[in-house]
């Protein structure tokens, strides 16, 4: 922002009518911080953290498919074994749950930066249109998903907090048994209201991810025509897998297929 701009030396009888940009005098800050201060940089970081989060969400969904595996000869649900396995990675060289915590912290950082970037850009954009249009907008290109990122994002955020309280900490679960994932899931999702909330949240997640993936290419500056040709398909495909996988849990539990 240190460029020379319009050194307008107006005479006494001259009224200058240019709007002045709101002054944003930033002192010398570190590279990352100044990068993050720019909208484009912030979008870039949002896109990268989004990639990490989508990766997590996808593998989280895949891992949860263990729910459908029949229990082993020892009678322990496979998903319980899988969960235990995650905690036990690297033992005894790495302390128990060590790697899991590293991943959790990384993921938490990605979430925090994604959330902060998202809300702050949304808030800044909102402020640039202090007077809204009176007429109903006729949208031609802007999809429902793209226009409602902040709403779907907020739903997902609230859901994540609930989901942690529900199936990780067990604080909002009536019949929570630590370590018994299969039991917790099935007893938790048996309640239609809870299952409904899971369904709604995952639909919101789908919308969010659908535009997010498509948008990521743009934010990261991909001008490759080959990627452009496939990015809608890629976004739709990944979204479909995540949403179908995730919706299957409450639906199959609710309908009693899994019990």
């Amino acid at each position: 922002m240190g460029m020379l701009r319009g050194a307008i030396v107006a005479g006494d009888n001259v009224t200058q009518i240019r709007p002045k940009a709101p002054s944003d005098e930033s002192t010398a800050v570190s590279f990352l911080l100044s990068f993050y201060r720019s909208q484009v940089g912030r979008k870039w970081i949002m896109a990268l953290s989004g990639v990490a989060i989508v990766g997590f969400v996808f593998f989280h969904m895949l891992g949860n498919l263990h729910l459908y595996e029949p229990a082993g000869p020892d009678g322990v649900a496979r998903i319980d074994e899988y969960a235990e396995g995650l905690r036990a990675i690297g033992e005894p060289i790495i302390p128990r749950s060590g790697l899991l915590w590293v991943a959790r912290i990384g993921l938490l950082a990605a979430f925090l930066v994604h959330i902060h970037a998202g809300y702050s850009l949304w808030w800044k954009s909102r402020k640039t249109r202090p007077v809204r249009y009176d007429a109903d907008r006729t949208w031609v290109t802007a999809s429902f998903a793209s226009r409602n990122m902040v709403i779907t994002g907020t739903i997902v955020l609230l859901f994540i907090i609930y989901h942690l309280a529900h199936l990780t900490w067990g604080t909002v679960h009536d019949d929570f048994i630590p370590g018994e994932v299969r039991h917790n899931v099935i007893t938790g999702l048996d309640n239609p209201i809870v299952a409904g909330w899971y369904i709604v949240a995952n639909l919101a997640l789908g919308l969010h991810v659908l535009h997010g993936i498509w948008s990521m290419f743009q934010s990261l500056g991909s001008t490759s025509p080959r990627l452009a040709a496939i990015r809608t398909g890629l976004a739709t495909g990944i979204t479909a897998l995540i949403v179908l996988g995730n919706l299957s849990f409450p639906l199959l539990v609710l309908t009693g297929v899994v019990s």
Binding site: M3, P22, Q39, V40, K43, L121, K127, A142, S146
Partner: peptide, 22 residues
């Protein structure tokens, strides 16, 4: 860098909805 920085001072942030190009 300079053009984008000035743009930032006045306008909102792109979220790739595509309504502009329409």
């Amino acid at each position: 860098e300079q053009m984008v920085d000035v743009m930032d001072e006045f306008f909102g942030s792109c979220s790739n909805m595509g309504e502009c190009t329409t």
